[in-house]
Amino acid sequence: MEYVTPEGLRIDGRRPKELRRLDCSLDVLQSADGSAVFQMGNTKVLAAVFGPHEVEVRNQMKEDKAIIKCEYAMAAFSTGERRKRGKSDRRSQELSLVIKAALEQTVMVELLPRTQIDVYVQVLQADGGTRVAAINAAVLALASAGVPLRDLAAGCAAGYLEGHSLLDLNFQEDSAGGPDCSIALHPNSDRLVLLQMDSRLPMDTFEAVLNLAQDGCRAVASFMRQRLLEHTRKLAMARGAVRA
């Protein structure tokens, strides 16, 4: 199968260094303290944040910081083939830990000792890049919940197929078996908070793929920033705190 045509187009018609269409909406759930839907192409993820609240299991309480509980789950209808997969299969558990690790570096946990923040991530449509889309959705949901954040972390993936570095792989490209490098980044301080890759790459190619993924993160971050700014301004304007 050909992943990049001689004209330089990918299966879905993108250029190698092109992101999929991004979309997001904030405060979509009534009952959650903060929530967001984040969409990258056909990947669509819903995140809901509850807390900070009291720690549910006493012996997990940390005296000096908040604990973050993260639950990643895929809806049965999220993939082409309908399949029940809950939050307890191995893949979901791993992704929960990955997202939690990225969020722990983003949330200012030291400001909320002895508390717990719950982040529920539900994949509604899966088409590659769900872990980075989940991080983006979770960060937006945390921001809309008013949880203190160091920075608006943004995630993006990049891969390498047939001699091309490809940005933001979709499911077909992801299942080609090539390397897939998922990263998340704090755009203001340029700090990486997540770096994962399966398969292998030579050092210099890895460098190129990593740089491409970082550029992708910055683009995603500026999109998220713009949307969150619009949202915050809209809320402030509606209550008369700022003028149009």
Binding site: A143, P148, L149, R150, D151, L152, H186, P187, N188, R225, L228, L229, T232, R233, A236, A241, V242, R243
Partner: peptide, 10 residues
């Protein structure tokens, strides 16, 4: 005064 800020903004 009346500046809209996001997490991480100076």
């Amino acid at each position: 005064e009346k500046k809209v800020c996001l997490p991480g903004d100076l």
